[in-house]
Design a protein around this nucleic acid. Structure first.
Lengths: 224, 224
DNA sequence: CGACCCCATGTTGTGTACAACAACACATGA
DNA sequence: TCATGTGTTGTTGTACACAACATGGGGTCG
């Protein structure tokens, strides 16, 4: 009844898939591929040194994650979202963030604490003049660090999935200068410090609530 | 910036993909393909009258949904889950069910009410001696009807995703006679009637809470 | 001038042959 | 008897050629 799994961790094909998937997902998230943009299967395949077949496997996965959409005979496009879908997703993300503190919260180990401190330092380095892309990268890294505060795997997967669905749309507002970047960076820096304070007290539920509040405020600022 | 979409709804390729995906997912959910079972790409491709290529696209999607796992040179297997993963997923499903009543609850239209009555009738028909598969099918149909009580699309998607991840494992307990099927059917029949009562009062939040309670109890009975 | 048709072009989708890989049976030797 | 190597078989993964499809431009007819 057990599914066979090679104990060796070489996984040539699987690793390649994972690399390509992460790389393309990051590019979408960081607006290297902006919403609405068309991706060329041929160019991407050439870049990664593979044929279209394994690349398409990655694209199919990303389509399942709601980040891409393929249209026969036309192209593969980065999906966009209107304000209504976005609001639904944000409201759900808020609830999930709170659940992070309720379902299997996990206190961070020493390694993770150091990682948070590094993130905090990176944040402060951005306060005096930041580029949107560097800020987006930091935001993503911080989010993924936060995910390690819960042991509930499905919750992690889903939160990550929704993060990647919303963050590029949010970033669009930043790029369009609808949001004041410097102000956003300052707010984010406070969020990191507040959450770190809660974590160091071992109060994971408080950390989750702070995160929830910031997701909410982030969406509010975006609407203005 | 808009993604092109044919307004015509013929979509030959897309429809075929959707059909194959739903069919295989249902088979997994109803234990036509039990957890741990190996699927033959060649046989499935022949059955659907296509080559391996488009079929593999479906399998990749199902792998992304956590229902399948492909191992190079060995086979494609229906995933199983141990009790720990299952508990995590069930706890998350409970919370999401409650959220259904909070985030964009929607009162059912006449069509949906009729559908619920039909489901109730089907349930009562099963009370005197039911087959596990028919019960599983009813359970699935009822769940998908419940999903229409919220307008929050991401919440719907995720709830459905998690349902398909857990229900086949739950059904395994039923097939293994760890759970008394007749008793399970009676409990489920009450759940339908209780939820319908709440819905007819327009109290969607109560309906959601009842559902949450039943998800919880279902998992408890399963553990015994 | 406008409406329509047709075809050239570029894209995604499909079929097929082959490569990479893992499991198993069997022979072979210590 | 057991360990080990080796070939066979069947599976998933990959490459490539071609089909299906949508788009846009130019031509043609009204």
């Amino acid at each position: 009844m057990n599914i066979p799994m090679p104990d060796n961790s070489e996984f040539k094909a699987r690793d390649r898939f994972e690399r390509m998937h992460n790389e393309i997902r990051n590019r979408i998230c960081l607006h290297d591929y902006a919403p609405g943009m068309r991706l060329s299967e041929i160019e991407l395949a050439e870049e990664f040194g593979v044929s279209r077949t394994p690349l398409r496997r990655v694209l199919v996965r990303l389509e399942g994650e709601g980040l891409l959409q393929s249209v026969h005979g036309v192209g593969t496009f980065v999906t966009d979202a209107d304000i209504n879908e976005l609001e639904q997703t944000y409201r759900l993300r808020m609830e999930l963030a709170e659940l992070t503190g309720k379902l299997s919260p996990r206190a961070p180990d020493a390694t993770l604490l150091v990682e948070f401190q590094t993130l905090s330092a990176r944040s402060k380095a951005l306060i005096d003049g930041a580029e949107p892309r560097a800020f987006a990268q930091l935001n993503m890294d911080f989010f993924q660090a936060l995910l390690q505060l819960t042991d509930n795997d499905p919750l992690r997967d889903i939160s990550e999935r929704l993060y990647f669905q919303t963050t590029r749309i949010w970033l669009k507002s930043v790029f369009a200068s609808k949001i004041d970047l410097d102000e956003e960076v300052r707010v984010f820096d406070r969020e990191i410090d507040d959450i770190m304070a809660a974590i160091e007290l071992g109060d994971m539920q408080a950390a989750a609530l702070i995160q929830r509040a910031h997701i909410s405020m982030s969406f509010t600022r975006m609407q203005q």
